[in-house]
Nucleic acid binder design. Structure first.
Lengths: 257, 257
DNA sequence: CTGTAGGTTTGACGTAAATCATTTGTACAA
DNA sequence: TTGTACAAATGATTTACGTCAAACCTACAG
């Protein structure tokens, strides 16, 4: 068993603003048989290499509303999401909030050359995640250069998503933003091997707004409009069916009607 | 001399939409004595290693309006900016434009695991840049793992900037955007060893607008307002003096008055 | 110097989305 | 079942920013 104390990145979080402190609720897991092994960073490591990894790693579960770390916390660990969903956000002093990303099964989190986390990571749906202290991660990278390569690819892909999001935030209309977002959610579900078309939308309208640079009301109205025009259909269980994919894609691309 | 043919990433660009085709105008350069060596990716390589690099590399100059590559071009090379300034942008079908970044001396460009460039790279001020075919770059990375590390750090920093920009685009007012932008420009100038306070603004109001998700008119009005309230002063040669730094920072942070 | 062209500023007006307010829907506890 | 609490939808109104239009400024060519 590892002597890793398990509180890196989770230390001393005051129960500020209604957030429950993030406490480990479970411990387990050898990496070789990990659920997300093929999708995650670890995909590039062999069974042997993974064996060693498990010793440095700790798996925890978190409830909705829990926070893995806050913006400004000193960087202590990185995480791999094994199940559940997270949102990452930045705040302005007066409370305005921008969600910079949603994380799902297989996603990697917390790789940061800076001293402090640049955003808060809060649980949307119960999360199972393994964490690795930053210094151990750095050692690992130094030992296995292919890891560095893998991380570089992941970072580049994230960067491409971020640039797409800038286009959305800077230049798209409310409807175009909603359409783009739903299509993105759908594609991501598919990538994860989950149902793509009636796509499950695990976040609130408020979170969608904070991701898309809109208010709740505008999100709601835009969705209603898409529904009314027959492009989408709202289903049970927070699921959205994309009824007219071509139209949806045209709208998302800014070429709608 | 290298047998590198010199047209990777520059092949067959039609003179579309008023853009001048990007043609090499100069060839030169051994990397060891390079101007930006200490700032650029190459900083992690030794003199010996750099000696080899020079053979794979080609240095060209580009005029304002030239395009290094277009969004959608298949990725052929990466670049290091030795002098000048560039803008990167994405377009919507109807011409709406989002500038995703400005590049200056020492910046790296074109590292991409995808098959196509995700944005167009256009010259703002005469650029001197060296280019390296993507496959050679990949070989280099495989040979020198520390390069991969370096690139990962650069990508992570870029990602942090992108997230900051999302906050700006999604949640800040016009004034806050302008203030944030000018402060960012100033800090970047400083990093490059150039004058930070009367900061030179090498891009047009239109480019600023397309970067900040605003129209030219709103950019102009916001600048006028900052000027009127005594926070900034416009100087000769497209330079802006930040007269009240504290106020400027408060405004940029969303905490202004 | 004079004309021309591009960028910038300023003004008048329109509008998409924000704000404020209320109603409706939904999940869950007693 | 009823009550409670919070999320979502809808309506009424305001507003920050966009659009349209004109004037102004600066640079450069002849």
């Amino acid at each position: 068993m590892s002597d890793f104390s398990g509180d890196a990145g989770l230390r001393d979080i005051a129960d500020s603003g209604g957030y429950a402190p993030a406490l480990p609720r479970d411990v387990s897991s050898p990496c070789v048989s990990c659920d997300v092994r093929t999708q995650a960073v670890c995909a590039v490591l062999t069974d042997d290499e993974l064996g060693g990894l498990a010793q440095l790693t700790q798996t925890n579960t978190y409830e909705a509303g829990d926070t893995l770390f806050f913006e400004g916390d000193s960087v202590g660990a990185c995480f791999i999401v094994q199940a559940g969903a997270l949102k990452l956000y930045k705040l302005l002093p007066d409370g305005r909030r921008q969600i910079t990303g949603f994380l799902f099964k297989g996603d990697f989190l917390g790789m940061n050359p800076a001293a402090e986390y640049g955003y808060t990571a809060e649980v949307l749906e119960p999360v199972k995640a393994c964490s690795l202290p930053s210094d151990k991660m750095q050692e690992l990278i130094d030992t296995y250069p292919k890891l560095s390569n893998r991380l570089l690819n992941l970072a580049s892909m994230e960067l491409a998503v971020a640039q797409e999001q800038m286009l959305l935030l800077g230049r798209k209309t409310a409807q175009e933003r909603i359409a783009s977002f739903l299509l993105w959610l759908s594609r991501r579900s598919e990538d994860r091997g989950e149902q793509a078309n009636p796509v499950r939308v695990p976040m609130s309208r408020s979170d969608m707004g904070d991701y898309l640079g809109l208010t709740v009301e505008t999100v709601s109205r835009s969705i209603t409009k898409l529904k009314t025009s027959g492009v989408i259909t709202l289903k049970e269980g927070n699921r959205v069916e994309i009824s007219d994919l071509d139209m949806m894609e045209a709208i998302a691309a800014g070429d709608g009607a």
